[in-house]
């Protein structure tokens, strides 16, 4: 479980996050939704410690992350899996080396075990036979998928995904969403996913937090979300005509 208590963050006096408190549940896919520029990425980076928060505290399974020293942070981070919005694959390493990196760095597995694990993870994101390509030779969506494989290679306890399916076709997007949900349940991880994709919300949103302009406006499940009275959330959700029609049908 990850708990965020009253965190605020500003850049050069410009507030980006305002007094946000959320608890993210273990074994569930927790979604953070909001418009472009609403502060999702900054929030995620505060949670994992890439940005220092100005105020507030973050707890991992009850332990204060904010209070940890560098060494303790380094240790807990080995249990993190992170998918960056731009994939952030290592340019100088091949697909296989990228996925294998954490195994090389932190385990004593032998070659064969590593190879099996890497292939397994790449299979799960539907990327067999691409092991020897370099990031520059991959499409945007393929990069994302390699990054997911890299994030899950060591069975993380906490998985963070920043827009896992932006730039993917709907079919692959659903596949990736489902994959994230499955492994979250399988390994009882605490997963946080940033997205502005309504499909994802409906598919895997067991817990959804809506932020706008750096503030939390709403939280609930995908079942509840269509019935919400919150104006900001409705504006966000029903920008799409299709979804608006869905709501109307649902209302009848």
């Amino acid at each position: 479980m990850i708990e965020v208590r009253n965190i605020s963050k500003s850049f050069d006096g410009d507030p980006v996050l305002r007094d946000i408190s959320i608890s993210f549940e273990q074994g569930k896919t927790n979604l953070i939704i909001g418009k472009s520029g609403s502060g999702k990425t900054v929030l995620l980076k505060c949670i994992i410690g890439l940005h220092e928060v100005d105020n507030g505290e973050i707890f991992y399974s009850g332990e204060s992350f904010t209070a940890m020293n560098v060494k303790a942070k380094k240790e807990i981070r080995q249990k993190f899996g992170m998918l960056f919005q731009g994939a952030a694959l290592f340019d100088s390493l091949s697909v296989e080396e990228n996925v294998r990196f954490k195994l090389d760095m932190f385990t004593r597995m032998n070659r064969l075990e590593k190879k099996k694990r890497v292939d397994f993870c790449l299979e799960r994101v539907n990327l067999g036979n691409k092991n020897s390509l370099y990031p520059a030779e991959l499409s945007g969506g393929m990069k994302k998928r390699v990054a997911i494989a890299r994030a899950i290679v060591l069975n993380p306890r906490y998985l963070f995904c920043d827009e896992p399916n932006s730039g993917l076709d709907p079919q692959t997007a659903i596949l990736i969403d489902q994959l994230i949900k499955d492994i979250t349940e399988e390994f009882n991880m605490t997963t946080i996913v940033n997205t502005h994709d309504i499909n994802s919300v409906m598919e895997i949103g067991e817990k959804v937090v809506f932020i706008d302009n750096g503030q939390k406006w709403w939280e609930g499940t995908n079942m509840e979300i269509l019935k919400t009275e919150n104006q900001e959330l409705n504006d966000f959700l029903f920008a799409n005509k299709m979804v608006r029609r869905l709501k109307e049908i649902d209302d009848i």
Partner: peptide, 14 residues
């Protein structure tokens, strides 16, 4: 590596 977040990725791996 810095501007493409590869350094962040390393840090997050511990």
């Amino acid at each position: 590596m810095r501007v493409t977040e590869q350094i962040d990725a390393l840090e997050i791996m511990g």
